[in-house]
Nucleic acid binder design. Structure first.
Length: 642
RNA sequence: GCGCCCGUAGCUCAAUGGAUAGAGCAUUUGACUACGGAUCAAAAGGUUGGAUGUUCGAGUCAUCCCGGGCGCGCCA
């Protein structure tokens, strides 16, 4: 193991051994016992690496390589724990700590099992573990193991990171097909602030899932079917197509819908026409379908404009509206009947999933066919599950839907499971989110007391941000000011939503989200822009060659801190996806940006002596890459200057 | 009435069952002859709504209260 001594950090390969379904850490010199495919990759990669070639093999090598020193130490600590514990199961989690670079706490958990003092156990583990060249260990407090990484080790790990096109982020060990159901506006109805949440959260999850290797199917479950369309189509006929198109294409969906609603509520004749029109629509009358399609197309034009403005990934290709499942509804009913789940209750065909009760304490049904024969949204949601599992062949269904729908979705999932449609490995997850509140802590409403329109919020965010950019940076060309204003405005809006735990209500506050200080998108974007500015300046300057004889300066704490942050990008992403909680990513990025600004104040870069300069430039390059990628995964752009 | 979610510093929010509960804003005090001050360094600020448990260890888990929000049969 000569290579191990010389260069321990580059001496290990981390990969996923399928036989054990467990991440494994192999010495680079070791091949025995590895699955053949991995052994081959390692052999080729090692050769490429030794010859200093930059080719596919190197990339593959880097991809398999684990850059996070916390994980590496955890892997190396595991056997030491096992030997001390005499075979007992220990999970030596190593996490960042204020008291050292990192901390492991397995000894405390073992104490009661072994009947020994935790400090003694920790001391034995420290004695048994060999982390030479990587870190020094110490026992602290009641039995924690403090980990302090060697400087050289950290630098080596940074090397690994800078060579990795994936910024150290592992692929998912078990990629799967994931459907993400999000945004879901209603046709011919305005998108409001609630749609902002599902759209922004859903889009971030899509980006994150794709980045770690899942096949993601975006589905925009638009409300394009059902009783309101009788009234909407009749109103369209009354108005005339050109007139209606003119209104709808400029985005006056609210006006259109309200006019239709008003007529429906006030005129019996109109109501009768509307009801009749629904029947005609559902019977497939071509002319009615044409008018229906017109409404859908005009609305989608408008929604698409908003999506593009917000940098949302959704396109017409992702449409999976309620109408799409229409033909499947009778099948849902039939299959439930065949499964023996269907019961008749008050004239409706229903399923009673156990565990739900209504106001009177009686069992609560999921209605699949209404009294009178119509289907309702439970039927449509069941059809969705069926379609996503059987046709799309997804194994993970994510529903980015507001928290109030929790019970309904739980019932749908339960019924789908009872029917045998949703069974492992396939499963559905309700990615619930709370309400948007005003600063008065009540549901955010406009002055008129109506839901705040999506479009108004986006416009105002961009307006405010553009004004700030103009004020702070009057010398930039106007076109660039507008471009940056859009990035900062939409970024701030998205980040405000993504940076808090999605399940809680969040308080919407213009001043805070655009405040360019604190935990906001502009702060992160500014950090990125400053780094890019330094790097641009550095490229323009002539570099003084490093004097080979000069001594490497010791790292300052701010450098250590920044490196450690960079090495945890992978952990941040997988942590985020674990709970489908984008705010974990946001928190990571904020801490990274803080580490950078502290570094920036403490460490001159371009004026540093050549060796330190080169190192710090590499550090900043990596920081900029991680910041930009992290923001990108949240759907936020990082401008070069602002 | 039943069920779900939330309750952490003045405000907005973090915190895999791990030590002395952390940030940001606001407040106070410092730092611009400076790679971008849209910044940084620091101070002060807490009975984690309350109680009882489980545990070596609880903001986190369990049970019960209190307060707030939401849902609870044919709208989606």
């Amino acid at each position: 193991m000569a290579t191990e001594n010389r260069q321990s950090a580059l001496g290990m390969i981390r990969t996923c051994d399928t036989r054990f379904r467990k991440p494994m850490l192999y010495p680079l010199s070791y091949e025995g016992g590895m699955p053949r495919r991995i052994a081959t990759i390692v052999r080729r990669s090692r050769k490429a690496h030794q010859t200093g070639m930059s080719n596919e093999c190197v990339h593959e090598y880097d991809r398999l390589f684990m850059a996070d020193p916390l994980v590496i130490v955890a892997e190396l600590l595991a056997p030491a724990f096992a030997s001390v514990a005499g075979g007992a199961e220990v999970d030596p989690v190593v996490r960042p700590s204020d008291r050292a670079d990192a901390q492991a706490n397995g000894a405390l958990a073992l104490a009661s099992k072994l009947g020994r003092k935790p400090r003694d156990i920790a001391a034995d583990v420290v004695a048994a573990a060999d982390l030479t060249g990587k870190a020094t260990l110490g026992v602290a407090g009641p039995g924690f193991i403090n980990v302090t990484f060697d400087e050289a080790f950290l630098k080596d790990q940074l090397d690994v990171l800078t060579r990795d096109g994936r910024l150290g982020v592992r692929m998912s060990p078990a990629p799967e097909r994931v459907v993400v159901d999000y945004s879901a506006p209603n046709i011919a109805k305005e998108m409001h602030i609630g749609h902002l949440r599902t759209t922004v959260i859903g889009d971030a999850l899509v980006r994150l899932l794709e980045f770690v290797g899942h096949t993601v199917i975006r589905e925009n479950h638009v409300g394009d079917w059902g009783t309101p369309f009788g009234m909407l189509i009749e109103h369209l006929i009354d108005l005339g197509e050109t007139e209606a198109a003119a209104g709808l294409s400029v985005g006056d969906l609210d006006g259109f819908y309200k006019q239709a609603r008003a007529k429906f509520d006030s005129s019996d004749a109109f109501q009768a026409r509307a009801r009749n029109r629904v029947v005609i629509l559902q019977s497939g009358d071509p002319e009615t379908l044409r008018l229906w399609k017109l409404l859908v197309d005009l609305s989608m034009q408008y929604f698409n404009r908003l999506y593009r403005q917000m940098g949302v990934l959704l396109t017409d290709g992702d449409l999976a509206g309620e109408s799409m499942y229409n033909d499947l509804l009778p099948e849902v009913l039939e299959r439930l009947r065949t499964a023996g789940l269907l019961e008749v209750s008050d004239g409706a065909d229903v399923v009673f999933p156990p565990g739900y009760t209504n106001r009177e304490g009686d069992p609560l049904p999921l209605i699949v066919q209404k009294r009178g024969g119509g289907f309702n949204y439970g039927t449509s949601d069941l059809a969705c599950v069926l379609d996503r599992v059987e046709r799309v062949k997804a194994t993970l269904l994510l529903y980015v839907v507001g928290a109030p729908q929790a019970q309904h979705l739980a019932m749908v999932f339960d019924v789908a499971a009872m029917a045998g449609w949703l069974r492992p490995p396939a499963r559905a997850v309700h990615v619930a989110f709370g309400n948007v509140l005003g600063t008065d802590r009540k549901m955010l409403k406009s002055r008129e007391g109506e839901p705040v329109r999506f479009v108004d919020v986006v416009d105002e965010a961009i307006e405010r941000a553009t004004a700030s950019v103009r004020e702070k940076n009057p010398d930039l060309p106007a076109a660039e000011q507008i471009d940056i204003g859009r990035m900062v405005g939409t970024g701030a809006l998205k980040y405000a939503d993504l940076s808090t735990d999605r399940v809680k209500d969040y308080v919407f506050d213009w001043d805070r989200m655009l405040a360019f200080e604190g935990n906001t998108a502009p702060y992160l974007q500014y950090a990125h822009a400053r780094i890019r500015s330094i790097l641009r300046k550095g490229e323009a300057e002539e570099t003084i060659p490093v004097d080979e004889g000069s001594v490497e300066p010791a790292m300052v704490p701010q450098e250590r801190d920044l490196i450690l942050q960079l090495l945890q990008f992978d952990a941040a992403i997988h942590d985020t996806l674990d709970k489908y909680s984008p705010h974990r990513m946001a928190t990571y990025l904020f801490e990274l940006a803080q580490s950078f600004t502290s570094f920036y104040e403490a460490c001159p870069v371009l004026k540093a002596e050549p060796r330190a300069r080169a190192f710090r430039i590499r550090l900043l390059e990596q920081t900029a890459r991680v910041l930009a990628k992290g923001l990108d995964l949240l759907g936020i752009e990082a401008p070069e200057r602002m």
